[in-house]
Amino acid sequence: MSNDPRIPILNVIETLSDRYLKGKVKAVKLAMMTLLSGGHLLLEDIPGLGKTTLALALAHALGLSFGRIQCTSDLLPSDITGLSIYDRDRNQFRFMEGPVFNNLVLADEINRAMPKTQSALLEAMEEHRVTIEGKTYRLPDPFMVIATQNPVEQVGTYPLPESQLDRFLITTGIGYPPEAMEKKIIRTGSIREGIREIEPLLTIEQLQRARQEIREQVQLSEKITEYIYRLVAVTRGHPMLLAGISTRGAISLAETARSHAFLAGRDHVIPEDVKDLYLAVCAHRLILRPENEALDRKEILLSLLEENPAPLV
């Protein structure tokens, strides 16, 4: 077994996408990159395409603890973070950790929760800690939230405000599986059962090492920095946009590009890394002008990619 920290990670991706999540390679890869970059993932798609399955499979394969929050309009912040309960035997309050105290937290249908609850979760995401009754608790490391939301349903939802969307590293859809794959799924039924049997393929140490490797070894050259800056800067003065990509967005793009390069086995970022991730990292951060609400953010970004060719020399 070689010493390459990349191999276990690739192994996870390969196993998951080959055996359990066929046809979701892209989503699996993006999820891994989010994990490697220490960010959070927002899955935006209609129900029934395997958002939860993806999160479950990932948790199992990574050998991480898993917590799940099913968001509803009456979900309270304490349902996420946990609360103190009076212990009669010991005659004192005891803190009961909520689902957020897990490595991998699935927040299903996050847009159904009240803004108050949403912001409690989002604060945990940003700070990696929660404060309850004056006491601060650190969240485990690695910590990653996979939130899902249904973009079609509008009744009884509280759409995430832009400032909170900005905290998700990557937004992606899952999409329908390929025809042959879907036929197979129809014949054999859901694979939820199988997922339970996935053996952990990755230790937390291996994950930490990979993260360190990405931070220290993957080079982001001047030209790529310039390219990323250009791609970000052109959104800021864009006539269809109220606000472009923030500096946090630019950092996110750079970080994920490093992870992308790492997964491709390179020690340097190339323009293709940036291009591949531009939509996933940046689309949800754009704020459209009211008169342009109907536009697709991804189309705008695609046109910007066309207008700003990758540096070659």
Partner: peptide, 12 residues
């Protein structure tokens, strides 16, 4: 070609 070329260019 891309591997070698990029390897130089984007390592500055």
């Amino acid at each position: 070609f891309a591997r070698i070329y990029y390897g130089a260019i984007f390592r500055d």
